[in-house]
Write a protein that binds this DNA or RNA. Structure first.
Lengths: 230, 230
DNA sequence: AATATTTTGCGTATATTTTACACATTGAAC
DNA sequence: GTTCAATGTGTAAAATATACGCAAAATATT
């Protein structure tokens, strides 16, 4: 990106993207934050993000910033809102197109590359820079609504997972408790899970059955029209 | 808005808002379009919209442009997506924050003030300027999803309406047919409708009962937590 | 004017879905 | 070894959704 002088007849706001990165493991839902090294809000935690280039669209920008700042490549990146408050950035008028990214925390290695990146459990997120507190609230709301219609949950789990893990995930995101048996039967009835035989013989019921998400069944199901209610 | 010279170190896209205006009457769902008087896309139909000022947020901008170009003041204006394709505007890099506005078509008088504004039934919309075809598709999808959770439908009806009208509205937006009796009982059971006594004595069943939306009951219901499924 | 048709409200029977819940098995904890 | 917690399976009851009949009167038809 070339620094120089760009002149316009009317003033223009800066356009940035921000990325709310959701991860999930046995400790529940978490978000990846970056500690700001410079003013404003130096030392505060914030979402990775940055200025949109003239030759990239918003999602491309969000993915680029995500990788630059955290080393992560997410499969699922989606915009959920644009934040335009006049005073949201003390440096000057800036609008940000906010995205969420869903990553398999189990596969994340590079997150530690960026020394100042850290996962925070969703209920232990500190006060954030700019209007990022508000952005996080909206992101969570968007995630909750989205999981009712699309199986985004599977983006957050390892390739192979168990029914209790899947239930934990839904319960973490939706902040409700389900009956174990009803959840399992409902989920299996959807027909988008494939039982994984990893060679080991399941002796007791104590060690759970392993499943993987079946994208083919899902596309079929989607084509027919369906409901994914929880 | 002052014209002049504004210089930045990095290039910036223009930021606009666009407004997909939905209206409803006995002919079904419709959108209000503006015929473009200048290039590019001169003579094409498009959504009202324009450049965001430095002292207004996106929703304020959308409302302002809406009023300037159509004379309408909508109660309900909400952003549903930001469109950022690199080549979406031939004049230069522009991102637009798209909103939908819901207006009571029965109360619209000023729409004809703008000579080149016209309502189009939703299934007779011509090919639009810029990427507005795509924006309309996304707007309709957003509307469909939204009506499942919030009673936005009432923004589109007159203050006083009948059950068949309400059903027509839901059927127009969701593109499905409901059983008349089941729809009515479901809707009444929500407890957000108030029967309106307009003095006239209802003799036959042929002339329908008049209702109005009760915002108080709705807020109560919302506070308790609820589902608005159709 | 007489008759047929459509529109509206109300209520009920049936199918489907959701919810609540008990027990047997076995790994883990002590 | 004994206790505890985690997992899989199935069933009965409750709630909800669906399908549909009937009567009254305005409107359309002849």
């Amino acid at each position: 990106m070339t620094k120089g002088t760009y002149t316009y007849e009317y003033p223009r706001p800066s356009v940035t993207t921000d990325c709310v990165i959701f991860g999930f493991d046995s400790d529940g839902l978490a978000v990846l934050l970056i500690e700001r090294g410079i003013e404003p809000f130096k030392g505060c935690w914030a979402f990775p993000g940055g200025f949109m280039r003239m030759d990239e669209d918003a999602e491309t920008c969000a993915r680029r910033e995500l990788e630059e700042e955290t080393g992560l490549k997410a499969d699922c990146v989606e915009q959920f809102g644009t934040f335009t408050d006049v005073n949201r950035d003390p440096r000057g008028r800036t609008v940000t197109i906010a995205h969420y990214a869903l990553v398999k925390k189990s596969e994340v290695k590079g997150a530690d590359d960026a020394a100042q990146a850290r996962w925070f459990p969703i209920d232990s997120v500190p006060s954030l820079a700019f209007d990022h507190d508000r952005i996080l609230r909206v992101a969570l709301k968007a995630l909750k609504e989205k999981i009712h219609f699309e199986p985004i949950g599977f983006e957050l789990l390892p390739e192979v997972f168990t029914m209790p893990q899947l239930q934990d995930l839904y319960e973490s995101i939706l902040e409700v408790k389900f009956d174990r048996r009803n959840f399992a039967s409902k989920m299996l009835k959807l027909g988008i899970l494939t039982e994984v035989n990893d060679g080991t013989i399941r002796k007791g019921t104590r060690n759970p059955i392993k499943y993987s998400f079946n994208p083919d069944s899902y596309s079929q199901m989607k084509a027919k029209g369906f409901r994914l209610e929880f």
